[in-house]
């Protein structure tokens, strides 16, 4: 039954993608279609990346109320960008190839995640300590970004505003190819490991006694999460609660936490939310740039609901 629900989610996602592409086609149709297709590609990447990253993080932490952004990963990406503006100046920053900026920011994220989180993971400190450390680092990075932004003069500050808020309407086109490759690879790895992930959801003791090498598996999963968050942050900016929203919906829809079902279901629902929401806002309500705010708010409500109904774990 759960499998059938996944097909339902997939059909919904396709429908929304079609609506996003096809609604209100006017003027130079070929041109508009090409533009929309590129946007859709970005949305799908973000949707898959956020959904998979959230599922993975929740699985290794054994906690339903977490999203990758609480680990400060997107803040780290922003800090990297701000630091580049600080070092290069606004004009220099604009002149650098976005792909190079992305690779630099990604390298910084992986390096820092490895430096900060791996020792914590390997020392087997409780996950709460790890997460709180991540959350505090997130606040630290965010504050440092805005501190740096204040130190740069107001001109340069304007350059940064563009990369500080989630904007689903104007994704960074240059990164589409590299993002697509990374997302596809990470999603494929997660899919191949779906059975191992099922076992990891039993927690460290259960997984170890079933023969999973917990430390390295957690390190590998964290690396995937970092990659996926980097992709989505680079494309549209920081997204906090989207993952929470779609994973909770997927779990409610399929009634299971088996990764063979949950991973595709969450990804499809994420596509539905982003493409569908964008289509509705763009054509129905005329405020496409605000999808980010709406999604964050709804995700926040889901978070409170999960807490109130005691569904944290």
């Amino acid at each position: 039954m759960a499998e059938r629900r996944v097909w339902l989610a997939a059909a919904l996602a396709l429908l929304c993608a079609a609506a996003f592409l096809g609604l209100n086609l006017r003027g130079n149709i070929a041109f508009v279609l090409e533009l929309r297709a590129l946007k859709l590609l970005a949305l799908v990447q973000v949707a898959v990346a956020v959904a998979v990253a959230t599922v993975l993080l929740q699985t290794i932490t054994g906690n339903r109320i977490l999203t990758p952004s609480i680990m400060g990963l997107d803040a780290l990406y922003l800090l990297g960008q701000t630091a580049l503006v600080f070092l290069l100046g606004g004009i220099g920053f604009a002149a650098v190839d976005p792909r190079l900026k992305f690779v630099i920011a990604l390298a910084a994220m992986v390096g820092l995640a490895a430096a900060v989180f791996l020792p914590l993971v390997r020392a087997r400190h409780s996950l709460t300590v790890l997460l709180l450390t991540g959350a505090l680092l997130g606040i630290l990075f965010r504050s440092l970004s805005s501190l740096l932004a204040r130190l740069i003069d107001p001109n340069d500050f304007a350059v940064l505003q563009g990369v500080s808020y989630a904007n689903f309407n104007a994704p960074q086109g240059e990164l589409l190819a590299i993002g697509a490759v990374l997302t596809a690879v990470a999603a494929a790895v997660a899919w191949r490991q779906r059975h191992v992930l099922d076992v990891m959801a039993l927690g460290p003791a259960g997984a170890i006694s079933l023969g999973v090498d917990w430390r390295w598996s957690v390190a590998g999963v964290l690396l995937l999460v970092v990659l996926l968050v980097a992709v989505s942050t680079a494309l549209v900016g920081p997204v906090a609660f989207l993952g929470l929203l779609v994973v909770a919906l997927a779990e409610r829809l399929t009634g299971t936490r088996r990764h063979a079902v949950l991973l595709p279901a969450a990804a499809c629902i994420a596509v539905t939310v982003l493409a569908g929401g964008q289509a509705v806002l763009q054509h129905g309500l005329g405020g496409a740039s605000t999808l980010g705010v709406v999604v964050e708010f709804l995700g926040g409500l889901v978070f409170l609901l999960l807490l109130a109904t005691g569904n944290r774990r």
Binding site: R64, A201, L202, I208, L210, G211, D213, R257
Partner: peptide
């Protein structure tokens, strides 16, 4: 290797982590 040992020895825990359902 963990997998080899998992065919010789297991520890029973009641904590299911995320998998209560």
């Amino acid at each position: 290797p963990g997998r080899r040992l998992a065919r010789t020895l297991t520890i029973m825990r009641q904590d299911t982590g995320l998998a209560a359902r």
